[in-house]
Design a protein around this nucleic acid. Structure first.
Length: 396
DNA sequence: AATCCACAGGAAGTGCTGGGCG
DNA sequence: CGCCCAGCACTTCCTGTGGATT
């Protein structure tokens, strides 16, 4: 296929009318089945319009339940109404996963020059405080996926943001914390918990019927007529409904399926395309995660991979993994890390969803972790083989 | 009922990187 | 220049523990 042909195919797409409407950062004109949440968030934030500081808000909900979309949607409208007196910053704490980086993002928004390393945290806070007070306004700081930040770095940034108002005369700061960890507040200092939890908002998962409705609306905007059948919509919705009603996933699958259909020059998206899309998404997710892991983590994963492949019915435990790992390390010709570190690495892999690990007691025979791969062996293999060092030791 | 294995996992610290500041 | 800062990957040293076996 020549470049010309590839581009022409997209120009005259038989599938898409507007592909961008399926992309994750697209916020639609209306958000169905989230009326209650929109209303409550709007009510909470509305005092900003009369110049008083709105309550801090805590938003809970699993991934893909519309937390981010609703928040952006409401804030955008609020800022428009506010005519420059109300502003908001959106900071994702997964991408900016340290206290320093979050503050640096905030600084960037305020136009303060903050180097990406080197300064003491207290110094950064001081500069931000000064910059905040330069203007007369209400600033709403949105911290998305804030649990990522707090679990790794503690709640010093939250503590700072909820108390900075005491030092300000012109600006008022409100915080909206978004999290998909429902037990998240356990990690918080009591003072932060009470001031941040002034208002709480829960986003329930979408059910299959709601997902279908959302998909239908979105499909109407994104696709030509007759390209996506109702059966396909139903299938995608059912898959996503099983995954905690994750709407982001639903849209992602639909997009991928349509891309595949386009690539195959099909005239419609079929259920087979959906299956392929689901596999591809799953695979890409794990392969990408594995590719970016540090060497020793990869080696530990490679050990688990080998044990799974050759080990038969035996259960895989920490001790077994450590032995295999040391074997691999010798082949590569580097020094092994301690078993203490292996414990942490196994937890990291568990958190990433690559493996399933749980502690069990074998009575007399000790207490250990039983580990199994949480994703298809094939996907792990593909991820590992992309590393030259690893592929050398597991290849033959 | 007591024992004791094979680890789990907390606390504190090290050495390195990549940057401040005065 | 010397000293300070945060973050990461890792070590050292350590205490804790579920439950099959004695």
């Amino acid at each position: 296929m020549s470049l010309e042909e590839i581009f022409d195919q997209y120009l005259g797409s038989r599938i898409y009318k507007a592909r961008e409407k399926l992309l994750p950062d697209y916020v639609p004109e209306d958000l169905p089945h989230r009326d209650e949440q929109i209303k409550r968030l709007a009510l909470t934030l509305a005092p900003a319009l009369s110049g008083s500081r709105p309550s801090n808000v805590f938003i809970y909900g699993l991934t893909g339940t519309g937390k981010t979309a609703v928040t952006k949607y409401v804030l955008r409208r609020l800022a428009e109404k506010g005519g420059g007196r109300i502003e908001y910053v959106y900071i994702n704490c997964r991408q900016n996963n340290t206290s320093y980086r979050v503050l640096a993002e905030l600084g960037k928004f305020l136009g303060v020059k903050i180097p990406f390393t080197g300064l003491a945290l207290g110094e950064v806070m001081k500069r931000i405080t000064q910059a905040l007070d330069r203007k007369h306004r209400i600033l709403i700081v949105v911290l998305d996926e804030v649990d990522n930040l707090v679990k790794r770095n503690g709640d010093d940034v939250l503590y700072y943001l909820t108390r900075v108002n005491e030092q300000l005369t012109n600006t008022r700061v409100s915080v909206i914390g978004i999290t998909n960890d429902l037990k998240f507040t356990e990690f918080l200092d009591a003072r932060v918990k009470s001031s941040l939890g002034e208002e709480e908002l829960v986003f329930p998962p979408y059910n299959a019927i709601q997902l279908e409705d959302i998909l239908r609306r979105r499909a109407k905007e994104a696709f030509h007529e007759g390209v996506v059948s109702d059966a396909v919509i139903k299938k995608v919705a059912a898959i996503a409904a099983r995954q905690n009603g994750d709407c982001r996933l639903a849209l992602d699958i639909l997009l991928k399926a349509a891309d595949i259909a386009e690539r195959e020059r099909a005239s419609e998206v079929t259920e087979a395309h959906v299956d392929k899309a689901r596999n591809e998404i799953e695979k890409n997710l794990t392969v990408d995660v594995i590719k970016t892991m540090p060497l020793h983590v990869k080696l530990v994963l490679a050990s688990i991979y080998l044990l799974t492949k050759e080990g038969g019915a035996k259960t895989i435990t920490t001790g077994l993994i450590y032995d295999k790992y040391k074997e691999l390390v010798t082949k590569v010709g580097i020094e092994p890390v301690t078993s203490r570190r292996i414990t942490d690495i196994l937890n990291e892999l568990d958190m990433a969803g690559i493996i399933n690990a749980r502690v069990i007691s074998l009575g007399r025979y000790g207490r250990t972790k039983v580990v199994a791969l949480g994703v298809p062996l094939k996907n792990v293999e593909e991820g590992l083989l992309s590393d030259i060092v690893i592929s050398a030791v597991i290849g033959g």
